[in-house]
């Protein structure tokens, strides 16, 4: 550690203090100010390099590939794949052609799925977090139980859900049809129209504990005096929630909703484990759709173009969301 002692102490010692010849030689002839300035960047360097390696480089490659006709004939030597300009993009956005049409359909399915899943996850998370706020017997146990879906490995959990959703032998139909007699036939959950709802159910089950966790942490920061003062002024529980709890959670919610939105929109594991490589038409999420368009049909150029379009869409949504929510918060703060 001695070798990496902060430069400040070295500069304090002064260049001509002549403490140790070895150290003096090692010290580069850079002005102390510059050295001080460069230290933070030096410390950032490893993180930056990794970031570059793990995120930026693959992303740039993805963007490059989206301009190439990278099909199975070229993957062995993918540099030789022909440049196709915007052809991949044109195919993807031609919404009256089969491929563009399918992508657009998948996009709407994903939007509907994401909005429903995020809204329900947030709602359940908020309600649960508020209910868990007052101490009662067994609160700690309940809190732990609530977090289980978040802690379980996605694959194991989703596979269990698919077993439960099976038409003939699944638990869901057993309860709905055999026990409660709610349906006249055993409905299908993994194929056809219901597959969309099955997907939403699993996604909400998987996501709400995260909302619960984040909001619970947010609630700890609201001073109890606020509630006490409100109660003194005659505010009911509902009013307290509306006027104190929710406004105080605004900052948490801003990030929470955004993160949930991005996670859900991009979720690959849930539909992949539930439906395999061929998702039903009604539950054809965009992540699976892109996977199918590149890995299963071996057309990586087309898949990359779709990915870039998706990235652009998410960037725009995020920027607009942050602009709006930040402005509103700025207004509220003022």
């Amino acid at each position: 550690m001695a070798a990496t002692a902060p430069p400040r102490s070295a500069s304090e010692a002064g260049p001509d203090s002549g403490k140790s010849a070895g150290r003096g030689r090692l010290r580069p002839r850079v002005p102390a100010r510059l050295r001080q300035l460069s230290l933070p960047y030096l410390l950032l360097l490893p993180a930056l390099a990794l970031e570059l390696l793990i995120h930026i480089v693959p992303m740039v490659f993805g963007i490059i590939i989206s301009f190439k006709g990278l099909t199975l004939f070229f993957i062995h030597n993918w540099k030789s794949a022909p440049w196709t300009g915007f052809d991949n993009y044109k195919v993807a956005v031609k919404i009256h052609q089969p491929i563009g049409q399918a992508l657009l359909h998948s996009f709407w399915v994903t939007i509907a799925f994401t909005v429903l899943s995020v809204a329900l996850s947030w709602l359940i998370g908020t309600v649960a977090a508020i209910l868990m706020q007052d101490s009662f017997r067994g609160r700690a146990v309940l809190r732990a139980v609530f977090l289980v879906p978040y802690a379980l490995p996605v694959y194991a959990a989703v596979i269990t859900w698919t077993f439960m959703f099976q038409q003939d032998t699944g638990l869901v139909n057993h309860v709905l049809h055999d026990q409660l007699h709610l349906t006249s036939n055993k409905p299908f959950w993994l194929i056809g129209g219901n597959s969309f709802w099955a997907l939403v159910i699993v996604s909400v089950w998987k996501s709400w504990p995260f909302a619960f966790l984040a909001l619970m942490a947010g609630l700890q920061n609201i001073p109890r005096e606020l509630y006490e003062a409100a109660a003194m002024d005659g505010a009911g529980v509902w009013q307290q929630i509306r006027k104190i709890t929710l406004p105080s959670l605004r900052a948490v919610n801003q990030v929470l909703v955004l993160v949930l939105f991005l996670w859900t929109f991009n979720d690959f594991n849930t539909p992949y484990v539930m439906f395999g490589q061929a998702a039903p038409h009604q539950a054809d999420l965009i992540s699976i759709h892109i996977y199918q368009s590149s890995f299963l049909t071996w057309n990586f150029g087309s898949g990359s173009a779709m990915s870039v379009l998706l990235l652009l869409f998410l960037l725009v949504v995020t920027a607009v969301y942050l602009l709006i929510t930040s402005r509103r918060r700025g207004d509220a703060d003022a």
Binding site: P58, G62, L258, S307, L310, L314, L322
Partner: peptide, 22 residues
């Protein structure tokens, strides 16, 4: 502050959004 957050969010989206290369 806002630009910082925008930047952070943009990086987050970038991280989550694109996983195109094998």
């Amino acid at each position: 502050m806002r630009t910082n957050r925008l930047f952070a969010a943009t990086a987050l989206v970038a991280a989550l959004g694109l996983a195109a290369t094998a």
